[in-house]
Write a protein that binds this DNA or RNA. Sequence first.
DNA 1: CGAGAGAGGTTTGAGGCTAA
DNA 2: TTAGCCTCAAACCTCTCTCG
Length: 324
Amino acid sequence: MYELSLCASCSVWQISQTCDPKGARVELYQIRYFLAVSRTLNFTRAAEDCNVSQPALTRAIQKLEQELGAPLFRREGRRTHLTDLGRAMLPPLQQSLEAAEQAKEQAENYGRGDVAPLRIGLSESVPLELLLPLIRELTKAYPGMQLELSRGTGSSVMAQLEEGEVELALAAMDGSIWSRIDAWPLFSEDMRLCLAVNGPLALQSSVTASDLSDAVFVTRRHCESSEAIVDALRRMNVAMSEGYSADRESDFETLVSSGAGVGFAPQSIVKNAGATVVALPVEGLDIQRTVSLFAVAGRRYSPAAAGLVRLARSADWSVSVTPP
DNA sequence: CGAGAGAGGTTTGAGGCTAA
DNA sequence: TTAGCCTCAAACCTCTCTCG
């Protein structure tokens, strides 16, 4: 029984018999020549098919036979035909050549941009809607774009970026980040207090610290600014009585809109939330966050990733963030 | 960057087999 | 018997890769 495998270190197909752990080195050109001879049963015509001279093809077949330890063809004058080993080798070698050709085609598609994979890590606190106009533009430039989005906390998407699991990350990180990270600040936005549209404070134009004295808070555990919010409220002598917490924006919105509590969220989230939530500024509370695009410095981008960086840096983000 | 090694190629020719 | 076709080997060329 023969097994065929592609050696990861030297990119050469290896055939091994179950009892032979060493295996034989088989080059792709040898497979191509072998298949041509098995098709034509004539070395000269096979050489013509392969666009090489007949001695070159003969030598390649001999080398292949030497590697496998037995002849693949019986040379009987004008009656060249496959040996038992040759017949046994035909299906796996055919398969391996097809696999190699597929791999080559796939590589060419990547090179031409026909297939353009793009993996982005997106912080839970950054709404996908912000990226949609850029994605639409990118799809025009790269029709074969295969976008893969990965959600997580700010620190987890940065970890994915470091590990190479994503090419780009979008988050509101401003503290300690890896020194090899390139960061492009895209926009800054205020944090607003979110409350149910039919709640008691909803008709006010702003909220004061005293309005919050009895408030029950819904916290967004995934938010990069949550610590800054707690600190700022403490300075205003507002104790955050945490009633609920959510690690998804949709759960946060559901809890707030149901009247379970109030909570802080960035303007971009509020703008993209449903009409059941209103967002108000809190007098004396000035917390901003900056959403940035991150990439690993010196790491080569895919064409689609490079395109996204260009588009993101030249985009007018105020349109996406400013509430109507 | 140049020298050397190695691999794959070509050209040429010898020798064997087959069919007319 | 012989022309034609086939395989194979030797000599040499070219290209690529590695190493100092």
